[in-house]
Amino acid sequence: MAVKKDVRQVLTANLLKDGLVVFMTDGAAWSPWIEDAAIATSKESALELEGRGNIAAKANVVVGPYLIDVIEENGRPRANLIREHLRTLGPTVRTDLGKQAERAAGGSGQGGAFI
């Protein structure tokens, strides 16, 4: 996705080995939680995120990194397209699966599953 002006963006990808959705953090690690994602607030910082993502892709950690638009709610990013929002949750018809299930089980915010 092209970098946009005045839009807050985070970088997302799928892990190579299991395909699960991840987000790049401030420390250039990958987290399963969008809340941990580094938010680019300028064209330059978005390009920097994208560059780090491409390095991770070349290192065979992730597949297909791309920037997504987010809005901030209580200081935390939320994907503003439904497609991307669903990637942060899992299937809405199976709330026992995916990130929403892990979140319900206390997975989010515990600092786990960083790569």
Partner: peptide
């Protein structure tokens, strides 16, 4: 992988 039916979808393979 596609020749062997393996896609990368929204949440996983």
């Amino acid at each position: 992988r596609l020749m062997n039916g393996l896609y990368l979808q929204l949440h996983a393979y």
